[in-house]
Design a binder for these strands. Structure first.
Lengths: 231, 231
DNA sequence: GCCGGGTTGGCAGGTTACTGCCAACGGCTC
DNA sequence: GAGCCGTTGGCAGTAACCTGCCAACCCGGC
């Protein structure tokens, strides 16, 4: 995991407050980011939010230490892509992070680029990799950071809490299940749906029962609610 | 409606490309915005996206003319708050805009601040009003604009197409309906749900029937699907 | 060829839901 | 006080759904 170390004692090259806040600062690579802007990570007082693609993206203040067990620490929000749960190890790590008080959500639409916002006053946006080196831009203009924060908030609001995502995630539906879903969604009676799909009523009902089990539903209404996120 | 006029012929004060792209430019008020950055609106070639709170926010290239009837014009995407449909007049206007080829979506979570992105290379973010005057910040740093665009895209993906929003919007549910919904969502049998709500089975089923009609559903499964957007 | 496992479909019994009908009740108007 | 209207609840008939049981069939392994 790429680690951003505490900054060196030399303050002369740091990205700080100052007269030229409207100038965005470009940093090349994780090392320069750590050296010149690492203090911004560790200096979060009120709120620290980030959008990341995977767990390997910049870690946050206090990690791996116990986070937010001290309620005076900053509120930490992390928005991940579903890729972050690609394997059991990653998923376990994410659950642990969440258990430590970090608010974790999974972005179920196209995730934003990797972004950090600290205390609502500085934003760091990651650019694409260029020959293996990634550039980061530090933004300090108040209105721009405010706009970026509002866009992040909208994405955050639309995302799914980690716990909900894990609970509602279910084994991939077979194409059979999807056809059953389509019939159910169309309000069809079992008999008509079975005819249309070319199977017997018993088999159709057998499939519906399977779907209900997959969705963990006790009634068709409940199944419809759960299925809402699948179509 | 605040209108941004075509810019004056004097180019000296315009916000343009140049050596100092990393410096964000602050503009105070709509007039200065129009004079120094109006060309950015009218000069969109490929794509023009904006997030707006109401219809009174900055209009877009070509409006009120026919938009996108010429397929070589820029793709225009507008993300609105549900406030944009607060009255019939606004809703009608929005439908007309969409009919002209503008892609309109309604943000069903907290909408972002007002934002414009032109051709993916310049972003304009609106700040709050200060004594009636609003500041706008023009951003031209490639990575920052890219990051802002990606956050906007995430918000856009999560939003609801105007047509879908209007179709799925339905009469406000009474508190009775919401209680019935809660029982149904919990997978309760009618008899148990009726008992819990303190009404007869007949009345409970009468309410469920009303709900089904409101949702336009022919089966409970279909009702569950429709209700997914209500809870 | 035989055997075992899995799936399908028919049947049946039971449960849950849907809706019409009607009496009773409460509130409002005359 | 009487009459009317709307709502509620009980009853009942019907429809739709749920699931167990079993025979038949198919397929793969031995």
């Amino acid at each position: 995991m790429t680690e951003i170390r505490p900054p060196s004692l030399d303050r002369s090259s740091r990205v700080e407050g100052g007269p030229d806040l409207d100038r965005n600062v470009m940093l090349r690579g994780e090392r320069e980011l750590a050296e010149r802007a690492g203090h911004l990570f560790h200096g979060a007082r009120r709120e620290f939010v980030c959008a990341a693609t995977t767990l390997r993206t910049w870690p946050v203040p206090g990690e791996p230490g116990p986070l937010r067990s001290d309620v005076s620490g900053p509120v930490v929000r992390k928005l991940f892509s579903p890729l972050a749960l690609a394997d059991e190890e990653s998923e376990r790590h994410l659950a642990e992070v969440a258990a430590h008080g970090v608010q974790v959500r999974i972005c179920t639409s196209r995730p934003p680029h990797e972004t950090i916002i600290v205390d609502g006053r500085v934003a760091i946006l990651a650019g694409p990799r260029d020959q293996g080196v990634r550039t980061y831009t530090v933004v300090r203009s108040a209105e721009v950071v405010g706009g970026i924060a509002s866009l992040f908030r909208t994405a955050w609001d639309a995302a799914t809490d980690l716990a909900d995502f894990r609970r509602d995630r279910h084994p991939a539906l077979t194409s059979d299940h999807r056809r059953i879903l389509a019939m159910l969604a169309a309000g069809q009676k079992d008999e008509a749906a079975a005819r249309e799909l070319g199977v017997s009523l018993r088999t159709y009902r057998r499939r519906v029962a399977e779907l209900m089990r997959l969705l963990g539903a006790r009634s068709r209404f409940e199944a419809g609610l759960r299925a809402g996120g699948l179509t």
